[in-house]
């Protein structure tokens, strides 16, 4: 690990201003992903700004309905919150499907959104990776791609976003609330928060320099049956090959987003209109333009079957 200086932020704006002003500065919250990457020298911050202790660890009700989740709310606390369990169960389900108990106790809401891909070639510093070292190439294209993306990818990068939580937030139409170094705030729809790789896979979110997530807002509850189905190589503590987050209403309409297949939670609203036509129609639309590789083409079939299973469960 490279040496770094460390300070505790005194306010969110203070943290954002310092992060913008100091080259090599990074926020640290739970640290479970950042420290892992720092040990491997994939992340090499020269200064860490500790954003724990800023009072961003609360879940509050929004006037007129909805919940505001502080950026520092731990994954365990968010999953266990009674309001989330009752009104946004897909979010609880997604959270408890992710990581281990130890990690969920430390990992934060904002950190979960900002975690990096687990592409093996991103992690292997002996390999070219456009995300880790822009312009160096992509070893995954000719490599082992079982875990990697089938849609939304590019010739520069086929990594997936590893979060379960973000997939549920996408289906719930969450918005990511931030503060900029100048103190102004904004809300970024979760659909626009993660960016596709294109030619610049090292850019992963819409955040500007120094901009810090302060909360995630959930709109008012919409009822329906909440399901998160995660398919993986082990029954627990493994990343998704395919996951499906769904909120299905009694009339069969609903919202569906997929994890494990793309560089961001994958949702196509037009595909949801096809729910009455069955899982094949939905999957065909979701994966229109997909570019699977030999190792991960199975994800298209697996996704369709997982959607079918989720639709059957919603009807039961």
């Amino acid at each position: 690990m490279r040496p770094f200086t460390y300070e505790k932020a005194t306010s969110a704006q203070d943290a954002a201003a310092k992060a913008a002003a100091m080259p090599g500065a990074r926020f640290i919250a739970g640290g479970t992903n950042l420290l892992d990457l720092m040990k491997l020298e994939i992340e090499t911050p020269s200064h860490l700004i500790d954003v724990n202790g800023l009072g961003l660890d609360r879940i509050e009700e929004i006037d007129g309905g909805g919940l505001r989740i502080g950026a520092l709310v731990r994954n365990t606390d968010l999953a266990a919150d009674q309001r989330v369990r009752k009104d946004y169960a897909v979010l609880t389900r997604a959270l408890v499907a992710g990581a281990s108990g130890q990690l969920r106790n430390k990992a934060t809401t904002a950190g979960n959104l900002l975690q990096r891909t687990r592409c093996p070639y991103f992690y292997d510093t002996n390999m070219p990776c456009n995300k880790r070292k822009p312009g160096s190439g992509c070893a995954a294209l000719g490599g082992f791609s079982r875990q990697l993306g089938v849609i939304g990818t590019s010739d520069a990068c086929i990594a997936t976003h590893p979060s379960d939580m973000a997939v549920a937030m996408r289906v719930l139409d969450a918005s990511v609330e931030t503060i900029r170094p100048d103190g102004t705030t904004r809300a970024i729809p979760i659909a626009e928060f993660h960016t596709l790789p294109g030619e610049t896979p090292h850019i992963e979110t819409a955040l500007e320099k120094g901009e810090m997530i302060i909360s995630v807002a959930l709109p008012r509850p919409r009822g329906g049956t909440h399901i998160y189905r995660k398919v993986r190589d082990r029954a627990s503590y493994a990343f998704a090959l395919v996951s499906v987050a769904a909120v299905i209403q009694r009339d069969g309409k609903g919202a569906v987003a997929l994890g494990g297949v793309a560089p961001k939670p994958w949702r196509v609203e037009e595909a949801e209109a096809l729910l009455p036509q069955g899982p094949k129609a939905v999957a065909d639309r979701l994966f229109a333009g997909a570019r699977p590789r030999e190792d991960n083409a199975f994800k298209l079939t697996l996704a369709q079957r997982t959607i079918a299973s989720v639709m059957a469960e919603a009807k039961a």
Partner: peptide
């Protein structure tokens, strides 16, 4: 419970 390897002592 947490993984003590993934957290900095100074935090």
């Amino acid at each position: 419970r947490i993984n003590s390897c993934l957290t900095l002592a100074v935090m």
